[in-house]
């Protein structure tokens, strides 16, 4: 139990640090959203499950919280990306294709 919990917490911490690194490194709003969503979903998810394995009395509550995070974080980041695309925040220079824009019928 203890070893599983520690392994899960280390996975979560590494994903959180990678997400923080991506927030600095990425050139674009959409890329930054992608990295930060990975940090919140996988990082927070595995950290919370790991805490539940470390203290087995909390396991059911932590599983409920983790499923809640797993449902909310991708939906909110998807909606943020959609709203910023409609608002007209520009993509970075290296972007080659923008399928969402061509699908909605606009030019450029």
């Amino acid at each position: 139990m203890f070893i599983i919990g520690v392994i899960l917490i280390t996975i979560g911490v590494t994903f959180s640090t990678l997400g923080a690194l991506g927030l600095v490194r990425m050139p674009d709003l959409y890329n930054r959203l992608q990295t930060s969503t990975k940090a919140t979903t996988l990082g927070a998810f595995s950290t919370i499950i790991g805490v539940g394995f470390l203290n087995p009395a909390w396991l059911i509550k932590t599983i409920v919280i983790a499923t809640f995070i797993l449902l909310t974080a991708p939906i909110s980041s998807h909606n943020l990306a959609r709203a910023s695309h409609k608002w007209g925040i520009p993509l970075s220079d290296k972007t080659s294709v923008d399928k969402y824009d061509s699908k909605s019928g606009k030019k450029e």
């Binding site: 909310t72 998807h78 959609r82």
Partner: peptide
């Protein structure tokens, strides 16, 4: 109009 993902997700999230 909200997108399909938001509609399905809110329907799943409401009982939680």
């Amino acid at each position: 109009q909200p997108s399909l993902i938001v509609r399905t997700g809110s329907r799943f999230l409401f009982p939680f």
